[in-house]
Write a protein that binds this DNA or RNA. Structure first.
Lengths: 252, 252
DNA sequence: GTCAATTGTCTAGATAAATATACATTTGAG
DNA sequence: CTCAAATGTATATTTATCTAGACAATTGAC
């Protein structure tokens, strides 16, 4: 071992400023319920010892968390924890954006970003069981909870069956209701592929992430009740605000 | 607008060093297939213009990517893109580590890290449907593919039923075979919770990740064929090497 | 071999982040 | 009111990151 004293998870060679590492660390700790009893963070001195850094570095971290709306510092009182927010998004045969967040006392909302026409690329065509190059309607949407963006989705629908579904979405603000308006009363999730990576610039902008922010990328296929694929989606969830739950109801 | 020219996705006020932002950005671009034709990155000068930074900053980013084994720079030739190898790990009712990677022509392997006894914390107890504080056998394992670590798992087994299962694992190197050796011939996955975050120091060490590396965290519950929970696992997958596939067979 | 294109190395200086101290201000308990 | 415990503000110094420019070393094309 070197003579360097090792402290909780701060890395001075990572290219990430200490205040940001500490802010990320505290955010995770809050999510894990570490300070739930006190309802507030330990004092700046205590935190600076815990992380092995100067008090001002801790202050910079807290300032960042304040900026995110997670905590609120007040002279003489301490730093109050405002809320613990990581939504649980169910992934099941009946996965839908708005109903998925229903039980969590939040206001779910979908926003229209853009739509257009495109020919299906290889991977999308395979998933939708159509020939590569088949015309598709594309739709890009933003999912919000209490006004905070949580997901950015890019959808493909076979144009032969769903031409104009984007117009329905602009009115209905829901894929489920858009399907219903076009005569498809019900549909099921048949496959979901999940990976994680760093968000690119555009994704960071829509999801209001800081550089280095992580997204969960879910590639999903929905089908009608006959099993014919009706939708291919690539949805990016803000990993700091959402976890995905693969549950029992996938079994029936 | 200010006189500052805006360049592709670098943010100078984020607390993340430019070289790391650029490394992350290039990694994402490689994943999206941006340089697939050339098979190599643009020159350092071209990249420094693209990101609006000095050539040396780009060099630092490339050095980081080289360290991750994603690219290889060679004087006079350029910076070659190595191969993007991301294993697909199926998540289904019959999820098992070794058979999951079977079809991908790789040599799967599990290694024993440590084991012990512990009382079940709240969340584990709820998942295993036992009282908090019930004795459990704990087991920590490393999953490898072709000798490269891909997952780090921490398991809980109810001690009343599975005392000594860690000893079986040390011999068998497989949870499935350890269960079999203790009289449990078959089991099924009943729930999986997936999220993503930055790896901590210890995780980076076992999974051989660079600082800033991402892990997919899967919280899973397995049960016997009567539906009685037999195992709770927290598995960390190296997000650069693994994607999780939630497929149709979850339905039967 | 010559040449252009590219990565590798070196030195120096400017900017941002982190440390070290000191003291002011706000709050709630007693 | 007084005091202890916090956060807020200020200044100076050290360290890490980024910029700038010059030149060496390697490679492949001609």
């Amino acid at each position: 071992m070197t003579g360097t004293k090792k402290h909780a998870g701060v890395d001075r060679t990572s290219g990430v400023a200490l205040w940001r590492q500490i802010a990320d660390d505290i955010r995770v700790a809050i999510g894990a319920g570490e300070f739930r009893e006190a309802g507030k963070l330990p004092g700046e001195m205590a935190l600076s010892e815990r992380f092995g850094v100067n008090r001002h570095t801790v202050r910079a971290a807290i300032a960042a968390l304040q900026n995110e709306g997670i905590v609120r510092a007040k002279a003489g009182r301490g730093t109050e924890i405002l809320e613990d927010i990581r939504l649980k998004m169910p992934i099941s045969r009946r996965t839908r954006f708005s109903s998925g967040l229903g039980g969590q006392a939040r206001r779910p909302e979908s926003a229209y970003i853009a739509s257009g026409e495109a020919t299906a690329p290889e991977d999308v065509a395979v998933a939708l069981r159509i020939a590569p190059g088949t015309p598709c309607v594309t739709l890009e949407t933003l999912g919000l909870a209490d006004g905070i963006p949580v997901s950015l989705a890019f959808h493909y629908f076979p144009a032969a069956r769903f031409a104009g579904i984007d117009e329905h979405f602009r009115r209905e603000r829901s894929v489920t209701r858009s399907f219903a308006a076009m005569g498809l009363a019900d549909y099921v999730r048949i496959s979901t592929d999940i990976s994680a990576r760093h968000a690119d610039e555009r994704e960071r902008e829509w999801l209001r992430l800081t550089p280095g922010g992580i997204v969960l990328e879910a590639l999903a296929v929905n089908a009608d009740l006959e099993g014919v694929p009706v939708q291919y989606s690539r949805t990016l969830f803000s990993a700091g605000r959402v976890s995905l739950h693969v549950g029992n109801d996938m079994e029936l």
